[in-house]
Structures are given as structure tokens and as C-alpha cells.
Design a protein around this nucleic acid. Structure first.
Lengths: 193, 193
DNA sequence: CTTTAATATTGAACTATATTAAGAAATTCA
DNA sequence: TGAATTTCTTAATATAGTTCAATATTAAAG
């Protein structure tokens, strides 16, 4: 069980002692997910915070018409969660599933609070995690409101060059806010010019 | 100078002592903005974190073609900032201006760190602020990728019922990711049915 | 390996939204 | 207040993106 990247990531924003690091590992639950296995299904009442050690997770919302809408792809060392469900212990509005075999560390709301109580440095760590995440969410919003589908697709490929190999295109289309058919046509147009 | 709402807001997520509250006010700078006055202009190298006491602030990005794209409207008791510029002391990518006469409390990067050092409870406060902000950003992304323009406009009116009175429609159109002309048509269509 | 199911492509018809340009209405400011 | 500027509306035309349905391709499962 190689924890070196995790430790490195936990220390990215705060100088955590070995003891504080061990508090994290004592409380977090390591889980292996098979490809297409769900970590959370929309409606679940237990909704953890997840740190992806390896693999790829997709967070999506299923609407009343049974259509899926992709909120986020998570890769190595990213945190992912339905934060609202996590915070309020309400049924999850999102599903999270593994797009590739994945290893994740999970924190339930109560273990999360335990860690914060025992090692308050983690408040700063998560403050920084969420702050950085906000920056990328805002950038995505700008792309959504100001880019054409083709521009969004190009930006996606630059930001996540390896994701196209892992994730079915229909989910990339959803992430970009277009239909799979139109993504297919856009890709063709780009390839032949 | 009535600080009661601010104090109430600062205590929303953490039990702060009167002394900790006073650390905030000793370090924050109160600024009054006239309507249409900028708090930050894109390119500025000093980019504070701002807590809006009253009024309305708009955060937007101006692209290479000189087009503005609205990232956020901020109302009473909302925090707003160019977080990337704030964190890294890099030139701001966003402008922030007052859409109505406003009163804001400003924290520069260094006063922010001072407050966190002297009252580490604020780490938790800001962790919660950013966490909640992430939830609403994700919801907006879902609306962007899955709603039609009309649906986005209706959702906007429900979420921010009073903003239409304050903000020129062209900025609401930008926030929704459509042209002002199309918003005008959409409004007409909704009014006559 | 073979069959089945899931995903991707294609084209035609359709709809949502953008663009342009002009005039009308509302705001700002001298 | 009145002129100047900005914002909003309207309409015609153009384009981006959707829908549907059929076929091709790829991946999953026995």
C-alpha cells in the first residue's frame, strides 16, 4: 500500500506532522472500485468525501427524464463528493462511479469532523482544496457561457488530455453540454481540417 | 456603522469570540463603492477578498474581443474575489464592479493571512464559505449544460428575484450564456403566454 | 471466441440561438 | 431639463446545435 503520493498531496498546502498524517490514514477508509462500480448512487443517504488515489471517477446528476449530466471527472489526487449531501447528511443528488479501476480514500462526515478536531491543520488543507476547486469551477463556467461547443471540446482536450481514452464520448459530450451526435460531428470536422 | 449582520455572518459556521470578531474588523478595510465603480479592474495586481455588506457586485471577465462575461453577481453577505489572483498575487483575470451603491469589507492576501494566524477559527469559516460556494457553482454548471436558455432564465429569476431590478439585462444575458437580444425575446415570449 | 449489448457515426430535418442593423426606450450627466 | 449615451426591442437572416432513425463499431459477458 504505497501512500507516498497521498502524503505528498496532504502536505501540499500545510506542513503536517507524521502524526497528523497518521490521523488521516487511521480514519480514512480505503476502497477499491472496479470499472463501472458506483461509489455513490443518487439517493444514497451516506455520501462520503473521496480522495482518488488512482483511477478515474465521474460525478453526474440524473434528471427527471433519466438523462445523465456530468458534473466532474476526477483523476489521481483529486477530491470528489456530493458536498451538499455530505454536509447535510441529505440524500445524494449525484452519483459517482469509477470509469476505470480506482482506489479511493473515503471520509464520512463524522470521520471528517474527527480528523478536523484531532488535527485542525486539516481545516486549512480543505480550505485550500475547496478554494482551488472554486477557481477551476469558475473557469469552466466562463467556458460554458462564452465558448462554442468546438472551443469547449478543444479546451477539454488540453485540460484533460488522457480522459478521452478512458471515458465514453457520450459522457464527454454531457460534460461539455452537447449531444453525443454533435460531439461526433465536431470531432470529425476537426480531424479533417 | 452597523456591524450586526456581518458579525452574524461570521458566526454562521464557527463560534467566534468577540475578540476574534474584533480581529476581523481591525484588519479588514471598509470601502464604499458608488454605482458602476470598480473594486478591481482586470489586470490589477492587488486583488482582495471582499465581503459585501450591502449593495451588489458583479464579477466578470473581458475576453480578447473585448466582450464581457459575467461570472457572478454578489449580494449582501456574499464573499467575492478573483481567487486565483488573490492567492498567487498575480494580475487579476476578472473585474469586479458595483452595480449599486455598495459597502464592502476587504481583505488583502496579507491581512487575510494575519487574521488566520491570529484567529485560526477563520480557517474553518472560510473552508465552509468555499465549500458552500462550490455547491452553488456545481448547480450552476448543471443548469448550464442541461437547461435551455429559457429554463436558465426562469431558474435565475427564482434564485435571484430582485437582481433583475438592479442589473442591466445585457449582463443577465451574459450570466446565462446568451445574447441580450435572445434574452429580450425569451422574456417577451414568457410574458405573452 | 461468439453473441449481445453498449457506444459511436452519419445524414436529413428541425429548433434554438446568434448576428446584424435599425429604431425605441431608458439612463446619465452637463 | 435636455442632449448624449447606453440599453432594450424587433425583425430578417444565418448558424450552431438537436432530434431521430438507421447503420457501423466497439466493448462486455457468457
Amino acid at each position: 500500500m504505497d501512500r507516498i503520493e497521498i502524503v505528498h498531496n496532504l502536505r501540499k498546502y500545510v506542513a503536517l506532522s507524521d502524526e497528523q498524517i497518521s490521523i488521516f490514514f487511521k480514519n480514512a477508509e480505503m476502497v477499491r472500485l472496479k470499472k463501472n462500480q458506483h461509489l455513490i448512487l443518487q439517493g444514497d443517504t451516506e455520501s462520503p468525501l473521496a480522495l482518488i488515489k488512482s483511477g478515474c471517477l465521474m460525478t453526474y446528476h440524473t434528471d427527471a427524464d433519466e438523462h445523465d449530466h456530468v458534473i466532474q471527472f476526477g483523476r489521481d489526487m483529486w477530491w470528489t463528493a456530493d458536498l451538499q449531501a455530505f454536509e447535510n447528511n441529505t440524500p445524494s443528488q449525484y452519483s459517482i462511479k469509477a470509469m476505470a479501476p480506482s482506489v479511493v480514500y473515503l471520509l464520512s462526515k463524522s470521520t471528517f469532523e474527527t480528523i478536523l478536531t484531532k488535527a485542525s491543520c486539516f481545516e486549512r488543507y480543505f480550505r485550500m482544496i475547496f478554494q482551488h476547486s472554486l477557481v477551476s469551477h469558475q473557469k469552466r463556467i466562463i467556458r460554458n457561457i462564452s465558448f462554442t461547443a468546438e472551443e469547449r471540446y478543444k479546451a477539454f482536450k488540453e485540460l484533460y488530455p488522457d480522459l478521452e481514452m478512458i471515458v465514453p464520448q457520450k459522457y464527454i459530450a454531457s460534460f461539455l453540454g452537447i449531444t453525443p451526435e454533435f460531439l461526433s460531428k465536431t470531432r470529425k470536422r476537426l480531424a479533417t481540417t
